[in-house]
Design a protein around this nucleic acid. Structure first.
Lengths: 222, 222
DNA sequence: AGCGCTATCCGACAAAAGTCGGATACCCGA
DNA sequence: TCGGGTATCCGACTTTTGTCGGATAGCGCT
């Protein structure tokens, strides 16, 4: 891993060209990647193409206004958690409330000060990164089945306690002999129980049973 | 699942008693659970005890002000994504920016209108729920190994391509005979390859090998 | 008590899974 | 070109796995 931290990509949706370029310039000087759109419809299209990490959006625009953009994007899974910041001249309290209630993450009023813009962008990106980190944790740790109890198996497949115990050890890679020793029973008995497990689980080999068992045991508690 | 949707719990950290009770009342009438604290230090303590789903917080308070609260809680994993809304009389633009830049999710100015308060609370709870939903998806779907390619196994255990192919099928519960048929080789050959896999993987049974292989294949790409 | 039901236990046999030795073919460097 | 290393292939033998039948003990119900 020698690749340097990838630049965050920011989409700017803004009607007026000078403003658009000005904001883009400020952000690029800070090392961000930028892309722009001149109205809401184009903005949504660009968002799909560029997958930005954060969206800055004007409110008053032709074709589709900022409220429409945030509504359209928020229902999409890909953008449900993308930080969305309004950047607009509409600075009345009611305007601000309306914008935030559409699900925006921040609301900057024009004329925007450089420091405010950068701080807001940084804060929201940091927050999004924190959330993404949590998601990664959840997915990377995805394989850690819980072998502490056989009850999940019992309920999942309708097994008897003893059968579930046998399956629990089999699912950890133990041989029939090992299981028999651990549970203090004859190896034949272990086999018998396991055979019943196969029937009830609808599988016909110890490996397939292991897979099914792991699938149950890997479900994690929130 | 007959249990009714659990009420969201909201923590109100606010210096002035009348204001505190007023806000709490408004929220309770909407069906929320509330708990309160009269300053920042108490607020943090209550937050740990009650694990609120959302926090409303004044800025100017004795002991520890709102900025301090949000800073203290944001670094804790448990509260890193809990919606945090400032509720304060400090309505200057610079105050708002400061609050948002500390990582707050919204900023309401006193005197607060009932509709604004409820809308803000609802919006932020909805957003938090969306994020939580994603986390749950990630953890619940935690078991879906990717059986489309044998290369991960090859690199993970130093296997040859053919060996990895055999292991890939074995890890899906296939018998040696099945694997041989699928890969068009003799069953003996399949066994031979698998035996080498066992050595290289440091296991001694097909089930243990399956577990190790699944662990590799279950790691998900972001 | 007598009956059916289930959970638990075990032994013997057939079918796999796993091990051993050996063979061919390829690539790469001496 | 000629070994040395490796990937691939296969057959015979041993061990484990899976299946069949059968036995006992508890539990609820009539």
């Amino acid at each position: 891993m020698v690749d340097t931290m990838p630049k965050s990509k920011i989409l700017i949706i803004e009607d007026q060209a000078p403003m658009r370029r000005n904001v883009a310039l400020m952000l690029e000087l800070e090392g961000y990647d930028t892309c722009t759109a001149e109205n809401g419809l184009v903005g949504i299209e660009v968002a799909h193409r560029e997958k930005p990490d954060l969206i800055l959006c004007d409110v008053m625009m032709p074709e589709l206004d900022g409220y429409g953009v945030v509504q359209a994007l928020r229902v999409e899974d890909a953008f449900a958690t993308t930080p969305f910041i309004f950047l607009t001249a509409k600075s009345d309290r009611s305007d601000i409330r309306a914008g935030m209630n559409f699900g925006a993450d921040d609301y900057l009023t024009k004329p925007v000060v450089r420091d405010d813009l950068l701080a807001a962008v940084q804060t929201r990106l940091a927050k999004a990164a924190a959330i993404r980190g949590r998601l990664d944790d959840a997915t990377n740790a995805s394989f850690d089945p819980d072998f502490t109890s056989h009850e999940p198996l019992q309920t999942a497949f309708g097994l008897t306690p003893r059968e579930a115990e046998v399956l629990l050890w089999v699912a950890q890679g133990k041989s029939n002999g090992d299981v028999a020793a651990i549970l203090e029973m004859s190896e034949k008995t272990a086999k018998q129980h396991l055979g019943v497990c196969f029937q009830k689980m609808g599988v016909e080999s110890r490996t397939a049973a292991t897979l099914a068992a792991i699938e149950i045991l890997a479900k994690r508690k929130a």
